[in-house]
């Protein structure tokens, strides 16, 4: 993802079975984010993730604006599927069902 500043934000893409556009907004220190990231990996679905706390200030602010569009609390993990469905927190059954 390219921002006006020209800095490429570190969004990591993980290849797998296509289940729509799956984006995980996470924190590098958050254990529930880690569990969500591991669940996505174990499900083998194509997805991307970003550690918001590691972003430079400007990119962090722009990324938080994206998170807030789907999750007004701005909490983590926030999982966004096809820019429509949003699952907040490590809700394993709900995530499995949404990506089945």
């Amino acid at each position: 993802m390219q921002y006006r500043s020209g800095i490429t934000v570190e969004i990591v893409h993980v290849s797998g079975r296509t289940r729509g556009k799956v984006m995980l907004y996470a924190l590098s220190t958050c254990v529930w984010c880690k569990k969500t990231k591991e669940l996505l990996a174990s499900l083998g679905v194509d997805h991307s993730y970003v550690f918001v706390d590691l972003l430079p200030e400007k990119e962090m602010e722009e990324t938080m604006n994206q998170v807030l569009r789907f999750n007004p609390k701005g909490s983590f993990p926030t999982l966004v599927i096809d820019e429509r469905r949003c699952i907040v927190g490590f809700r394993e059954a709900e995530i499995r069902e949404a990506l089945a």
Binding site: L27, S28, C33, D53, G74
Partner: peptide
């Protein structure tokens, strides 16, 4: 570990599951 990382980063032990 997250509390220690946050203390080093921010100077206070912010919740590891929240954005400081």
């Amino acid at each position: 570990r997250g509390l220690l990382v946050n203390t080093a980063r921010y100077g206070y032990a912010s919740c590891p599951c929240r954005l400081a």
